[in-house]
Amino acid sequence: MFAVYKREFFSYFRSPVGYIALALFSFLSGLLFINQFGSGAISISSEIISLRSFFVVIIPVITMGLFAEDKKRGTEILFYTNPLSLFDVVLGKFFAALSLLGVMFLNVIVHMIITAVNKGVVDIGTWGSVIVYFFLAILFIAIGIFASALTDSQIISAILSFIIILIIQLISTISTLASSSVSSFLSGKMFSMDAEKVSKAVEKVSNGIKWLDPFAKTQDFRYGIFSVAPLVFCLSGALIFLYLTYRVLEKKRWAQN
């Protein structure tokens, strides 16, 4: 696993990808940090939460090449014909992408130090935001890796993970839309249900969709209210996608076409 990890992590810095991602992140986080200067109160938590919305761009970029490039260049054969397991390969690549994100995050750590030195607020809630940031990153990187294993084109892989991550980020909007359409459908001519039943059904639908939202699940962390369930949710989601990636790779051996 470590061999693959080492190669993938350093390969970010053999091409422009790593540098561009780092520069972009430094710029955005710096902008978000400086923007708060005028308000008089610096909140690292809100900086981190704003940064999360850039996952939808950054994560597809850092994961798109992980398997797609190997497939295109024919180097994936190395993973099958050498004495290592395919799951080690998946984990190696996963941790390489996570490490790059960690390196990017050093920017925020610097901002935290600046804030703390100047007697600003760096409290348990800030650390809660950091924890959430990385657990969401783990989930999204796993999705990006899965997308990369499905195709030998980096572009297609990036678009695929972009779409999946976008949908996850928009879950709360989607649930609002869905509940309003369910409500108008049920109270319409076809069913003409009474208001009480309709509101119950709507609640069920919207709760069902919201259950999938990792952002809503983790929103209390920034106030220092921690719970294990949301973290388990992110981790198990990541594991499912990593396992699916492993199966996609394994399938290559047995496929009959």
Binding site: F2, A3, V4, K6, R7, S11, R14, S15, R73, G74, T75, E76, I77, L78, N82, P83, L84
Partner: peptide, 19 residues
Amino acid sequence: PLYLDMTVLEYLNFMCDLK
């Protein structure tokens, strides 16, 4: 199966790690 972005020595070292 060559990684074009590595030097020959880096690549062979990576293969040593893999094997």
